[in-house]
Design a protein around this nucleic acid. Structure first.
Lengths: 140, 140
DNA sequence: GTATATATGTGTAGACTGCACATACTATGG
DNA sequence: CCATAGTATGTGCAGTCTACACATATATAC
């Protein structure tokens, strides 16, 4: 009931910042852990993973980016793939998460936790601005 | 001669994940809002900002990266600078946040909030793994 | 004047990713 | 058979971010 409230928060990444260049908080390498998390639930392939990625704010995931990332991930050993041709339609490259991939996910989660604390610091500074303290000083 | 001895704090960011390549959750462009936030409190210059940046996880901020970012920010109009030579030591380029910079910060904060929600989704998926549900299925 | 601390910069290369484009297989309709 | 559309995977290129190494200049202490 209370879970899926991110209905259509998609525009967030589009053009809300107007004229600014990088006014958007997204982590680098976000795509890798998202893919791993999906694969941990069940094995899958690029085309399907693309759809699932939207859950994490990748509104219109670019195919090229995703496939390239998957190949890279395989080269690093955090996923493995085999061709699946035993059905109608074009062949699918089915991906599986490896043990190394699990480890990667754990590292990522730990790092994300720490980063969350950093963000709290940011918000404390951002909102909790004490009046009469930040005007014209030089910092010494 | 004196190299800039930033030797020992580096491992923190470099090798935390062991053999993995990008196992670290940090948003791209993190440095820009951090600088803006610092400048909102009081005007400052590169060398000083470097130290303050450590608060936000830049353990051993690289001078080059910081100075280049500051120049870029000025080109974009979110900060302004003037030389300060009225004291001992090398001249300092003093930076001030502009109105556009304030706006940038607001956009960033909003974006960060949404990103926090995305991270919660991630953790729900990561930790809330129901037993006996994620082993060998193919997704169809 | 040499070393050190302060202060600001450039050059280069690698990584991430958005956009455009290319390829291939299968099913359906004519 | 051929054309077309949907599924599925992939490459090329360019822009951006940033880590690392290196270069420069000023002032103070010795």
């Amino acid at each position: 009931m209370s879970e899926n409230e991110q209905s259509s928060g998609n525009e967030a990444r589009g053009r809300r910042g107007g004229e600014f260049r990088g006014v958007e908080a997204r982590p680098r390498n976000w795509l890798v852990p998202v893919i791993l998390l999906s694969l941990r639930e069940w094995n899958s392939y690029g085309y399907e993973l693309m759809e699932r990625a939207t859950t994490f704010g990748f509104e219109a995931m670019n195919p090229g980016t995703l496939y390239r990332t998957l190949r890279q991930m395989e080269k690093e050993g955090i996923v493995e793939s085999t061709w699946e041709t035993s059905r109608g339609g074009p062949a699918r490259r089915m991906y599986t998460i490896t043990d190394a991939g699990m480890t990667y996910l754990d590292f990522w989660a730990k790092s994300l936790e720490q980063y969350q604390r950093t963000m709290e610091t940011f918000f404390r500074m951002y909102t909790g601005r004490p009046p009469g303290k930040g005007d014209d000083e030089t910092g010494e």
